[in-house]
């Protein structure tokens, strides 16, 4: 393939990564923004989403599409519910202390991973996408005979990938409107701005925290369900989305949702593009160093304002 088609393909792959990453990272971002909790187990909630999607789609044996659509609802809800239980049993009792919650969520990470290994097993398992037509893409070139349309071999995209990108955009826009317009969104922002004041106004902080933690985990699970037909479910798959979400949340400005989405697009695209042209390891090194330096020299993030 020529450089041009290659580049476009990399951008499409990057957009897919960005879409899933945005969902996962926004989940981490609301939890950090509102609860001030760094949830190290976030990647495991992602992994659980993928694993539950596999269980649902294999037990419901009518048609792959039915199983998948069911998983799209069941997995986020189950994971969100599990997160709420974890919040009530552990985080709440630690009084949401920033350092101790980090350690406790590390413990949760080990537990979730091990339980998944014991039930789901060590193998990577695929989920069949509900639809998966391949669209070959044309390429336009200015050759010796003037303008030419060519069909480079291997240059194409599946309908499923396009659907994932669109679905993620719809969810994110919906979430943004929900947070901006609804009463719960208002309560969340009030809690984020001033916890004491929110308490004084009779906002049930602990219930808000539980819902936020559930919502964050549910978003990660949703991202995982979307990606699992493309990349298989595996009990160790949570590490990478955790790291990338961290990167995105920090570059976007801790706790800022629009910033997080912008950063997800930036990181997703550049990850896709850099890893097509360079080694993916180098891409990750650059991304992690970027995060570190952003935090050192610009702690409010590239797009964020100063921390409150």
């Amino acid at each position: 393939m020529e450089f041009g088609p290659h580049f476009l393909l990399a951008t499409l792959e990057g957009a897919l990564t960005a879409a899933v990453l945005a969902l996962t990272a926004v989940g981490l971002s609301v939890v950090f923004g509102i609860m001030r909790v760094v949830n190290v187990a976030h990647g495991e909630f992602f992994m659980l989403g993928a694993v539950i999607a596999w269980f649902v789609s294999t037990t419901v044996g009518i048609h792959p599409a039915v199983g998948f659509l069911l998983a799209l609802v069941v997995a986020p809800v189950m994971v969100g519910f599990l997160a709420i239980v974890a919040d009530q049993l552990v985080l709440r009792r630690l009084d949401y202390d920033p350092e101790r919650t980090i350690v406790a969520t590390i413990g949760l990470l080990y537990c979730i991973q091990q339980v998944t290994l014991m039930t789901f097993g060590p193998d990577a398992r695929p989920v069949i996408p509900p639809f998966n037509q391949r669209i070959a893409l044309p390429w336009f070139e200015l050759g010796e005979q003037g303008f030419q349309v060519t069909w480079p071999w291997g240059f194409g995209v599946t309908t499923y990938k396009l659907a994932v990108i669109m679905f993620a955009v719809i969810i994110l826009v919906g979430l943004w409107r929900f947070l901006a317009r609804s009463k719960f969104g208002l309560i969340m922002r009030a809690t984020q701005l001033d916890r004491e004041m929110a308490l004084a106004f009779g906002i049930p902080i602990e219930r808000v925290y539980a819902i936020v933690f559930g919502l964050g985990a549910g978003l990660a699970a949703l991202g995982a369900v979307l990606i699992v037909p493309i990349r298989q479910a595996h009990y160790l798959m949570g590490g990478e989305p955790l790291l990338l979400s961290f990167i995105v949340v920090i570059i976007g400005g801790l706790g800022s949702i629009p910033g997080t989405i912008m950063a997800a697009i930036l990181i997703g695209l550049s990850d896709g593009i850099i890893s097509v042209f360079f080694s993916p390891t180098l891409a990750k090194i650059i991304a992690t160093l970027l995060v570190a330096f952003v935090l050192v020299y610009r702690p409010q993030g590239l797009f964020g304002r100063r921390l409150p």
Partner: peptide
Amino acid sequence: LLVVGAAI
């Protein structure tokens, strides 16, 4: 790992 996680 489950034991370790629970212990933490």
